[in-house]
Design a protein around this nucleic acid. Sequence first.
RNA 1: GCCCUCGUGGUGAAAUUGGUAGACACAAAGGACUUAAAAUCCUUGCCGCUUGCGGAGUGCCAGUUCGAGUCUGGCCGAGGGCACCA
Length: 844
Amino acid sequence: MERYNFKSIEEKWQKFWDKEKTFATKIDKNKKKFYCLEMFPYPSGKIHMGHVRNYTIGDVLARYKSLKGFNVLHPMGWDSFGMPAENAAKQNNLDPKTWTETNISNMKSQLKKLGLSIDWDREISTCSDDYYKHQQNFFLELLEKKLVYRKENYVNWDPVDETVLANEQVINGKGWRSGALVERKKLSQWFFSISKFSQKLLDGLDKLGNWPNKVKTMQKNWIGKSFGCEIDFKVEGNLPVKKIKCFTTRPDTLFGFSFLALSVDHAVSEFYKDNKEFNKFKKQCSKTGTTEEAIAVGEKIGFKTDLLAINPLDPKSKVPVYFANFVLMDYGFGAVFGCPAHDQRDFDFAKKYKLKIKTVVRPKNENDNFEVDKEAYAGPGILVNSDFLNGLEAPDQSILETIKILEQKKIGQKKINFRLKDWGISRQRYWGCPIPIVYDDKGEAHPVPKSMLPVKLPENVNLKVKGNPLDSQLDWKEIKINGKKFTRETDTLDTFVCSSWYYLRFCSPKESSYGFKKEDIDYWMPVDQYIGGIEHAILHLLYSRFFMQALSHNNSEFSLKEPFDGLFTQGMVCHETYKDPDGNWVSPEDIESIDGKKYLKQDKSKPITVGSSESMSKSKKNTIDPENIIANYGADSARLFILSDSPPEKDVQWSEEGIASSYKFIQKLWNLNLKILSEIKKDHEKDLDNEFEKRTNSFLKDITNNLEEFSYNKIIANLHEIYSFLIKQIEKPYKKLTLTENYKKILISITPIIPHFAYECLSQLNIKKLDWPTYDEKLLIKDKINIVIQINGKKRGLIESKPGISEDNLFEIITKDEKLNKYLIDKKINKRIYIKDKLLNIII
RNA sequence: GCCCUCGUGGUGAAAUUGGUAGACACAAAGGACUUAAAAUCCUUGCCGCUUGCGGAGUGCCAGUUCGAGUCUGGCCGAGGGCACCA
């Protein structure tokens, strides 16, 4: 048998696609468009298995849609600003631009080796000024719309990366990239007013029918809408403070009010700024919420003020006012009213400071003497001990009623609050998009005139200075505009800004006057299918949605609200983990198997312990380099295996056995191909029967349905099944036409999976024009079917029959069947349930 | 703590509207071919008894139904998200 030479065949077709520009796309209004987009990569230098999976899934879809007759846009680009470039450049004494460009060219050639159907003419890179000049222009547009502002604020400061992080980028009190404990620092920062769109971003989720619910839920929780009431509390004391505003979702528990708690950053703290004890307390608070220990313990601490707050519904009741560590300044008003009986956090605080705990809600199955004892009661019930509110049903009725009363008395007002905070976009880094702002000698910010865009990043900067290198780049920082001296903003934009609109740029990658052309956007957008990792469920996907809201805000020319019509989040690629006897991680490449046991290759006296399969990561050394895999097995084998084992949304286990078996399978397909070619030459006079056509037809139905449903693992199963059929049947005499027509259909339908192999086989049949093969419903009708026979719901046998057999005829066959009839002898039949052509259940 | 998702052989998984549980693979064992090995092909989910057949079986316990992996309720377990959000 001839061996399948994947190396030369894959190379041949990749060259062909390149030369013929097979995947280049233009607007064609006679065709329905399909925009297939995978999350673009950061150019770290090498592709990893996650990319292979992500882009293979996208490629299957893009190729399938294109065969179906859609005008498919399937572009690729580079998310090329960001810190790794800066760090790598510092270490290796080169500049981030060179480092990034080298990486891009490496990764591009690796991606090409996967045989992806990408329109490379549309390639973009966010670090190129062709790209970021439009981004600077968008920034200025949003500034004009008052959706960008600057304010001094406490920020999340990453001490290792020496930069500010957005709230979304702080994970368990640590920087998402560096893992360093995040500190609080006061800085002047630029913000996007994402919170203005909270309601719209929330409402938009309902329209995203093709998004996973999981992602929608995560965004919904992140936006965090809550309905409640703002209440003015009068206060007494020797400070010039008359009232304090609080936000609450449970105004109905106001009669249980026993303290008022303020954030240490609340305006009232001004009166304590010289108080030593207070400052000590404040310092203590700034630690909580950032150290892991504090989060785990979660102890509530307070600092008592000289103020007393008056219960607006019960003016005789006056309670102490505290500063407390659990009150956040940037939610609500930085002040909460404490009702210990019905809020666990308030309960803990009250216990610690021995404050009154008054029950005002009783569960329905308790009487009015019910008292909260060991923990707060937050469930539903009836209001008690609440004067004129007694008897109301909590929470729904009682909340609405109380708000009505508070509004009548002009003490409070209905209010909706969101957890979502504005997006801080300033980063104290060099390798990012410069913010097009300058400051005059008074420190006032001014936009850079649009005619002066792009504000280019200076080259040849000294990266080894402490802090932001742009700060010490004086020849860049100081400029004159119309003869007047200004200094530039030296912060650069968060790189998530770059990825918030790149999908628009793919529609008009060469347009120089603006970020995109209206005509292009009108045709291509929205993205029909976006594919990427779940890790971007909030960050990137929410920012992109916001960016469309912001661009379309007060803009009659641009009305797009949601960028991604469909979203698919693929699972991770996992691999077993290995450790040597000393407990060090060992790479799969350094392991040899002897008699089913694993040893260290370099030192075979060392046995290896096999650990659980986990997502591939450098730290656990369980990564597999796609480049080696492609070199040893070919791109088609890699694609076949990465699709085969698990559904695309779930994690997949990479294994050496798996990839080897995919490789063998392609060889088997090749052998089959050779057999079929020689059968075609024989050209028999008559078809033996039409079984071949029928089988092909049902295969086409399966593969089409599975492609539509993203069940790519099942497509591989379909391929295995059709192979098993063909290898057994193919030597039966079939007419040339039957053979070529059906084989052609099969080959076309597998081009999305193993394109190089399929194209090669198709070219041997001299087939150039590829259309998705349709299946014929009529051919799906079988002449023989198996009907399940159940006795009392239990399967007892199968009866082969022609379709459409009547219940009585079937029953007659059963009574003549020795095996089945033995269950019926001397039994009274109470009932028969017949599901036509499927099942007969006899109840005795 | 709150929210979401998921529990099917040794493993990854299939199973239209409730209607043959385990398709398709991986691993392991046995067998065929071979002087031998590799490669290839075939068989095997579990428990019984010799083949053949019988029994149990989709995390556990109930329920609905002629019939439940699928629907309902409760419990247990795993994974993910959020975390002082008032």
